[in-house]
Amino acid sequence: LQLFIKTLTGKTFTVEMEPSDTIENLKAKIQDKEGIPPDQQRLIFAGKQLEDGRTLSDYNIQKESTLHLVL
C-alpha cells in the first residue's frame, strides 16, 4: 500500500509498504529514501505516536493514508 509521509517543513514523499510491515520497517524505508536515522523519527497517525513493534494494520493504516514525520 502506498503511504504519504508529510514532514513539518511541508515536504511530502511516498513509500510503498505492506499492511503486515512494522513501524520499524517503515522507519527503515524512510531512512533509505530520506537518510533520516530511525531513532530520530517520530511518526504520528490520527493523533497517535506509532510504536516500532506494531504493524501498520494494528493502527488501521490504509492505502494512501498520510503519516506525519516529526524529527
Rank of each mutant, 00 (worst) to 15 (best):
I36Y: 14
L43Y: 05
L43N: 00
T66K: 06
K29T: 10
L71V: 15
P19C: 04
V70P: 01
K27I: 02
K48R: 12
L8F: 14
E51D: 12
L67G: 02
H68F: 07
M17A: 15
G47R: 04
K48V: 14
T9L: 10
L50G: 01
I44T: 06
Q62S: 15
D58Y: 12
P38Q: 15
I5R: 00
I61W: 03
Y59A: 03
K63W: 09
T7R: 12
F4L: 11
I30Y: 01
Y59S: 03
P37D: 09
S65H: 06
G53W: 13
L56A: 04
M17S: 08
K63G: 12
Q41I: 09
Q31M: 13
T14Q: 13
R54A: 11
L8V: 12
L56T: 02
V70Y: 14
E34R: 09
I36H: 12
G35N: 09
S57A: 12
N60H: 10
E64K: 08
N25Y: 14
R42V: 14
S65F: 07
L71A: 08
N25I: 14
A46L: 12
Q41C: 04
K27E: 01
D32Q: 12
D52V: 07
S65G: 06
I23R: 00
N25R: 15
E51R: 06
K48I: 15
L56R: 00
T14S: 11
T14Y: 08
R54E: 04
K33L: 15
G10R: 07
K33M: 15
K11Y: 11
P38F: 14
K11C: 05
I44E: 06
T66H: 15
F4H: 14
E51Q: 11
I30E: 00
I30D: 00
M17F: 14
R54D: 05
E64R: 11
F45H: 07
T12P: 05
T22P: 06
L8Q: 08
L67W: 02
F45R: 03
E64Q: 11
E51M: 12
E51Y: 05
P37V: 06
T14E: 10
D21C: 03
G53P: 07
L26M: 05
I30W: 01
V70R: 07
L8R: 14
D32T: 11
K27H: 02
Q41W: 04
G35M: 06
R54L: 09
E64D: 13
F13E: 01
G47H: 07
L3D: 00
F13D: 01
